[in-house]
Design a protein around this nucleic acid. Structure first.
Length: 849
RNA sequence: GCCGAGGUGGCGGAAUCGGUAGACGCGCUAGCUUCAGGAGCUAGUGUCCGCAAGGGCGUAUGGGUUCAAAUCCCUUCCUCGGUACCA
């Protein structure tokens, strides 16, 4: 027997290159992963991974995203679920267009060739995607339904047109943020300085759902994402208050300035006002001698980014307009400023400034020497004492001071009273505002879904009738070396007749934000070829919401919030049942280049997975990506250590195929550990396997793939020590090997399938794929310990360990500890002041003086 | 700036209902073995003192709570993601 196994090891090395393609072909042949969506005999499990953008930078990051998801799909199948694990491609977007502008060619060609490469890579990694459900968003059979949904939203009053500012290059038109470069903000392509321009654009009314979007009940999402979305929506409860402009020598006064404040209680402390540079009354309230200065300031502010403007670190800037307003509660004249730290898009675009109680207002008042008046103070505080910083704290026992007849009132109550009083004369009202803005979906670009609208001189905005959808992108596109939207120059696309009156009209040339595509794509997976509607309602009702969604944390606010909005809007249009898209969410980390930057061709830090697969095989690469760290962490790419994972698979190979072999080099090879009987060894092997099964099952459930693999390695190491001994090949050994293969199957599907099939044939059993086996059950008897070892501390420092019966009581543990010689010598005659037996006997701490 | 996450050996990381810090792997050191390969096996490996037994120190920083802190609280520093036209 020894001879035959030795000759087998000689000829049979673990050769992934011969195993992997064979099994991939076999699985495809068996249709193992083409989900039968109508099968109701098993519980459904919709596992969704964020569909990739087919960038030109195909790299190991795509494997990192997909590998654990695929393992999870396989794991769930082994638990008896009918798993639907589809894939598609987010095929519209800027990079394809940038490539076309730079290098010529068509964005379609570029995108489709990238998709081809990605399909091939996903196949070589053994990913079990339901390819028959694939969706490519740039295909008219998909984007047609974007257009159709847009029209439904238009009917529902959820889509509207309004002015919005874009970054504008005189040569290349609208620029994305990433196309604006440098501190001087110049165009990526031509270098011209970027301007702001206001354009009529399309919005979706996300704010209609602001409150519902704040409600996360019924979905199991990571806390940080919920917090980020809540902050992004930014609900503020406060009041809108009207200030009147005071008359002076240059204007008659009487204009009304509305401000929003969350702190109406501080009204008496409002010692100046600030308007956003874009505020419509700025020009009118500016005194003639200040006009030039103010205009220059407004122009300069418009060039700044919002991030820059909101920085509390940057020194405050601003200019007094020369006009005053009247504080409605005390009749004081207060100066009006324009400053860029006030944004036109939030609240009313104007604020009452209360420097005593707002950090930004305080900084501004400091710089411009404005009055700071404290109006809220804790009892007993000197209300007149000067402040050296804004006083923000808002404790419940604070009282109003310097606030006329409201003095002494609790701050909250006083604020409400002031609003109620002003409301009597229509000068205030309670108000809720949100930081969330409506979703600007217009893009002045070619490579996206055309917005299905026609402009007619007579009929105005006319929706394209449903039966004329899709509005197709023209097949030929001429960028003419410019970044400007080529649709603007395409007469065949532009010139249409009005569907209402038949007169010549012009087609909308804006296309949709690609986040529209990604806001409902998983519904389309359920019926990708359906020709008479976007969603198969019966399928959707059966399969949604998605049970588990996985994707990068960089999508925490935008994609994941837009999707929630979209599904609510679709539900309200009667198209679907659910109001939430994803029941559970997991955010995986991102693989960066070795330099710690995002992987991209231009940075030259892209790791090609093909090269690693050629060298080690797909299973090793899959395992390594799962092993390198927690999945939610990501981090810089380094192949250091991939050899260790490969070695592990080699050991599994050897264990399964050559249990009786002995390694030269080990002095103890072939003999059981000292003092261990064969019976002990058999039960130790079995116990190790079942403990591993218990822990590995929990790790899969918790997405702890790195520790899951570490535990499989430990089990393999344990079994390896028994290789060549008398227990190798015993029933317990065989059971352990089978468990090891089953546990490994979701993560390393090819090698486990290969070894499984050999194990079955060696045992004379008929073949059936390891991936259709049931996940094994832990034998509770096998994992029980007779004794346990307890660490003993003296004054918190580890000094000894004591072994007690597994069911020892605290008193028995104490007695065992005090009986230890080592402990006695450390105590040196002292009696412990206290003996802590912690955590149900997990640890003992003796406290001495 | 703001919102969110994170910082542990030479390296990736493990341990977070407060209870043995460093599992597993890489690298390194020594030995063995050999089908001499980009092999395999065994043992050791946080750091300092020590022949050893053993002890001191140690989880970005400084403080606090506790019998006990990588874990909880406060301070500071650094890194990453998002910041509404990258996806």
């Amino acid at each position: 027997m020894t001879e035959t196994t030795e000759s087998r090891t000689r000829t049979e090395r673990y050769d992934p290159a011969s195993i992997e393609p064979r099994w991939q072909a076999r699985w495809a042949e068996l249709g193992l992963y083409e989900t039968d969506l109508s099968d109701e005999s098993r519980p459904k499990y919709y596992l969704l991974t964020m569909y990739p953008y087919p960038s030109g930078d195909l790299h190991i990051g795509h494997w990192y995203i997909v590998t654990p998801s695929d393992a999870l799909a396989r794991f769930r199948r082994m638990h008896g679920y009918n798993v639907f694990f589809p894939i598609g491609f987010d095929a519209f977007g800027l990079p394809a267009e940038n490539a076309a502008i730079r290098n010529g060619g068509h964005p379609f060609t570029w995108t489709m060739s990238n998709i081809e490469t990605m399909r091939r890579q996903f196949r070589t990694m053994g990913a079990t995607f339901a390819w028959n459900a694939e969706v490519v968003t740039a295909d008219p059979t998909y984007y047609r339904w974007n257009q159709w949904l847009f029209l439904r939203f238009l009917e529902a009053g959820l889509a509207y047109r309004a002015l919005s500012t874009v970054d504008w290059c005189p040569n290349d038109g609208t620029l994305a943020r990433e196309q604006v470069e440098g501190a001087d903000r110049h165009c990526w392509r031509c270098g011209a300085l970027v301007e702001k321009r206001d354009l009529e654009q399309w919005f979706l009314r996300t704010t209609r759902y602001a409150d519902e979007l704040l409600d996360f009940s019924g979905i199991d999402w990571p806390e940080p994402v919920k917090v980020m979305q809540s902050n992004w929506i930014g609900r503020s409860d406060g009041a809108e208050i009207e200030f009147e402009v005071a008359p002076d020598g240059h204007q008659p006064g009487g204009d009304r300035l509305r401000v929003f404040t969350t702190r109406p209680d501080t009204l008496f402390g409002a010692t100046f006002m600030v308007l956003a540079p874009e505020h419509p009354l700025v020009a009118r309230l500016t005194h003639p001698e200040r006009q030039a200065e103010v205009e220059a300031y407004v122009e300069q502010a418009r060039r700044r980014t919002e991030i820059d403007r909101l920085s509390t670190e940057r020194e405050k800037t601003g200019i007094a307009l020369g006009s005053d307003a009247i504080n409605p509660v005390n009749g004081e004249r207060i100066p009006i400023f324009v400053a860029d730290y006030v944004l036109a898009g939030y609240g009313t675009g104007a604020i009452m400034a209360v420097p005593a109680h707002d950090e930004r207002d305080f900084a501004f008042a400091r710089k411009f020497g404005l009055q700071v008046r404290r109006v809220v103070a804790a009892p007993g505080l000197d209300a007149q004492a000067p402040l050296d910083s804004a006083y923000i704290a808002h404790a419940s026992d604070e009282r109003l001071v310097n606030s006329g007849r409201y003095d002494g009132m609790p701050a909250d109550e006083g604020g409400k009273a002031m609003v109620a009083w002003l409301a009597e004369t229509g000068r205030a009202e309670p108000k809720v505002t949100y930081r969330l803005r409506d979703w600007l979906i217009s893009r002045q670009r070619y490579w996206g879904t055309p917005i299905p609208v026609i402009y007619c001189e007579r009929d105005g905005i006319v929706p394209v009738p449903d039966d004329q959808l899709p509005v197709l992108l023209p097949e030929t596109v001429d960028y003419a070396g410019s970044g400007d939207n080529p649709l603007n120059h395409d007469a065949a696309f532009l010139d249409v007749v009005c569907p209402r009156c038949g007169l010549p009209a012009r087609r909308e040339t804006d296309t949709m934000d690609t986040f529209v595509d990604s806001s409902w794509y998983w519904y389309r997976y359920l019926s990708p070829h359906k020709a008479d509607g976007p969603v198969d309602r019966a399928m959707a009702d059966r399969w949604t919401p998605v049970d588990q969604y996985t994707g990068g944390a960089e999508h925490a606010v935008m994609h994941l919030l837009y999707s929630r909005f979209f599904i609510k809007a679709m539900a309200d249009s009667g198209l679907i049942r659910d109001r939430e898209p994803f029941k559970r969410l997991f955010n995986q980390g991102q693989i960066l280049g070795a330099d710690g930057e995002r992987m991209s061709k231009s940075r030259g830090n892209v790791q090609d997975p093909d090269e690693l697969v050629r060298r080690y095989g797909a299973d090793t690469v899959r395992l390594f990506l799962m092993f390198m760290g927690p999945w939610d962490q990501g981090g810089p790419w380094s192949p250091t250590g991939i050899g260790g994972v490969h070695r592990f698979l080699n050991r599994v190979w050897t264990l399964a195929l050559d249990p009786h072999g002995r390694e030269p080099g080990d002095p103890d090879a072939g003999s059981l550990p000292a003092g261990q009987s064969a019976a002990d060894a058999r039960s130790a092997a079995r116990s190790a396997a079942h403990r591993t099964l218990r822990d590995v099952s929990a790790d899969y459930e918790a997405f702890h793939f790195n520790t899951m693999i570490a535990k499989l390695m430990e089990l393999a190491n344990t079994l390896f020590r028994y290789r060549g001994t008398e227990i190798a090949g015993a029933p317990e050994w065989d059971e352990a090997i089978r468990l090891l293969l089953l546990m490994l199957a979701p993560a390393a599907p090819h090698i486990s399938e290969e070894l499984w099939s050999r194990h079955l044939s060696a045992a004379g059993e008929p073949w059936s794929s390891i991936h259709t086996q049931a996940w094994p059950e832990v034998d509770p008897i096998a994992v029980v310990d007779a004794t346990r070892e307890i660490p003993v501390q003296v004054n918190g420092k580890l000094r000894d360990r004591v072994t007690v019966a597994a069911d020892a009581t605290n008193a028995e543990i104490e007695a065992a500890v005090l009986a230890r010689e080592r402990i006695a010598s450390i105590l040196a005659g002292r009696t412990p002041d206290r003996i802590v037996v912690a955590g149900g006997g997990r640890l003992v701490n003796l406290v001495v003086r």
